[in-house]
Amino acid sequence: MIEQKAACPGCGRPNSAELCGDCLQWQKQVGFVLENRGLFYYDAGFRQWIEGYKFTGDYRLRGAFTAELNQALKNYRDYLICPMPLSKERFATRGFNQVSGCLELTKPAYHFLLERKELAPQSGKTRAERLKMEQPFTLKVSKEKIRNQRVLLVDDVYTTGRTLVHGAELLYQNGVETVKTLTFAR
């Protein structure tokens, strides 16, 4: 697991106890910094898990770190928990949302607040292409449901931060008070 005290307070990058260069760039570009907590290092073991779960479709693997996820979610008891959505096309291909699959085994309820437009998957894009990505989300709920609320966006992997920043931007534009993020790996 990633030691949070030794991680970037913005993106959760390990071994970067102050805001990293990427987070300083995000702050300049969008006017805020995410407060992401990454649970695990994106290492060979995590890569093997995500390939089996997300890309091969072994749904049984969704419970691999339920205890750690439950523990992390205790820090967000007064937040609306929102898994990052898949496009309808990606959901139809995969058959499940990898994030909500894991969240189903945890105690807190979660809500799909965002809807994803049909765009090419991020996994096949370069870093530069990811950073230039257009806003892929629309709001799935009424503004009244989220106004002045705290939201925790949950995703599987923090790569460039672009997807999570897009989600946070849309939520802030629609009256959310605070957005934090949690990723399974960084």
Rank of each mutant, 00 (worst) to 15 (best):
Q122K: 10
E144S: 15
S123H: 13
K180F: 10
T183C: 05
F184L: 05
A120M: 11
K74C: 00
S16W: 12
A168W: 13
I81P: 01
F55V: 00
Y42G: 00
P9F: 03
M1W: 05
A44Q: 09
G63S: 08
A17C: 01
M1R: 01
Y59D: 00
M133I: 00
W26L: 08
R60I: 15
N174W: 07
L34H: 05
S100E: 14
R162L: 14
R147W: 00
Y110V: 03
H111P: 01
N75M: 06
F40P: 04
K140T: 02
R37K: 15
L164D: 07
R13F: 10
L105Q: 14
K132C: 01
M84I: 15
M1P: 01
E129C: 01
F65D: 04
L131G: 05
E115Y: 06
L34Y: 13
F46R: 03
G95P: 05
N97H: 06
K117V: 01
T66H: 01
T178E: 10
R127D: 04
Y76S: 00
P85W: 14
G124I: 04
L171H: 07
L24V: 14
P136W: 06
V99Y: 05
Q135L: 13
P108R: 13
K5R: 09
K132S: 06
R60H: 11
C11D: 02
F65H: 11
L170A: 05
F112R: 09
E104N: 04
R150Q: 05
L61T: 09
C20A: 13
R150V: 02
G167R: 04
F96R: 06
A7F: 11
E134Y: 02
G12K: 04
L34K: 08
K180G: 08
M84E: 03
G161W: 06
T183L: 03
Q149V: 07
A168V: 12
P121T: 12
H166R: 09
F32V: 07
K132A: 07
S87D: 09
L80D: 00
